[in-house]
Design a protein around this nucleic acid. Structure first.
Lengths: 207, 207
DNA sequence: GCCATAATAGGAACACGTTCTACGTCGTGC
DNA sequence: GCACGACGTAGAACGTGTTCCTATTATGGC
């Protein structure tokens, strides 16, 4: 698996290589359809034929844009994270300590997810099931999460986070993901999820 | 979904309700076949027809013992964890500090897993994909992991771990799971996985 | 031993992710 | 205009997880 420059023809269309307006439009329709189906019925309801029908593209076209159901769902997740991260980037994050601000960000994000449990289930499942071929999309999500957390730790834009900041952010991200998986799969309640995250942040960010 | 006493008839056979010797034997053959197929070819190679053939049971029988591929693989994982936990329970865990002993346990376990990458991929994938219907098996695995870690923190058998111990153990477990997923799905190397876990343990167990 | 019932074998059938084939359409260089 | 190649449509086909059905075989109570 080489890491060369992606070919712009004959390959699946990525977020970067957007193609024509018609292609951008198709891509959006597909992601919207995915989002709607996932919100209403979760992972199982996102059936490739249903997505294709709902987005009014042929099955083969769907597969040209997203080479698998997992790519499709992780791309939808990345789009949601981008929206979320943009929101936090624009707002002032409340809290006097790093721990408080981080907890604010996580709770806010988690609450958003828990408001759409089926959607969250679909996106989380896809994320956990993704293999190396989805590395690009996964990496996008990971960067956005780390960036959100380090910004919450240091709201002053002007310096880069330290290695320790990034390490802490990654651990928090890990805990968050595990908690999300436990919640999504019905193994813990929303309240337990929140409490566990608070505990973890408390352990990691004792000033 | 009630939580009543499981019916012993007409339901799938659990680890507790072992049934006759012939049934225990079948269950073992099935798990052994699963193990072998997973070790050689990973998640995709564990095909229900192949497991049934290899274990010399009919497909319907396989489904009577394990209601889905995920149940099957998570049960295999639980068996492996039980073996692993028993090993640690018998041995003296080296290291002067809690952090050193925890890292020893994690590295030893991780090394074992990384020695059989395909097997690990299969088991981890199944674990991450499991839903609420696999809660029992998942819980078994979680308890074993927490128990291994708290024992490493406090090698003296005779007192129960504190809440804080359990909280730390759970966070470490989360990090470990995330790292395993990243490794299994080809998103990080074995070395990165080890380093990340050491960092996390260092952050959580600074004495 | 014999019967009732549960368990198993064997395999067809179905669902959904994925691939493939055949054909139509659009847009670009000439 | 028009030929050509990339793109799109429609849908068949295939693989594997899961369900279902029927006949056969164990098993346990009498």
């Amino acid at each position: 698996m080489t890491m060369g420059v992606p070919m712009s023809t004959t390959n699946s269309l990525t977020a970067d290589d957007l193609g024509s307006a018609a292609q951008r439009e198709r891509r959006k329709r597909i992601l919207d359809a995915t989002y709607d189906l996932a919100r209403d019925g979760g992972f199982d309801a996102v059936q490739m034929r249903a997505v294709a029908d709902s987005a009014e593209v042929a099955l083969g076209t769907l597969y040209r844009y997203f080479p698998s159901k997992i790519h499709l769902l992780v791309s939808a997740l990345a789009r949601e994270f981008e929206r979320n991260e943009a929101l936090f980037r624009k707002m002032e994050i409340p809290g006097d300590t790093a721990a408080e601000r981080v907890i604010f960000v996580m709770k806010r994000t988690t609450r958003g997810l828990q408001g759409d449990p089926k959607l969250t289930e679909a996106l989380t499942r896809a994320f956990m099931f993704a293999d190396a071929s989805v590395a690009t999309e996964i990496h996008t999500v990971g960067m956005l999460l780390t960036s959100m957390l380090t910004r919450a730790m240091h709201p002053d834009d002007d310096h880069e986070p330290t290695d320790q900041d990034v390490a802490i952010a990654r651990v928090i991200g890990d805990v968050w993901l595990s908690a999300l998986v436990a919640w999504v799969t019905g193994r813990s309640t929303a309240a337990e999820t929140g409490a566990h995250m608070e505990t973890a942040v408390g352990l990691l960010l004792r000033d």
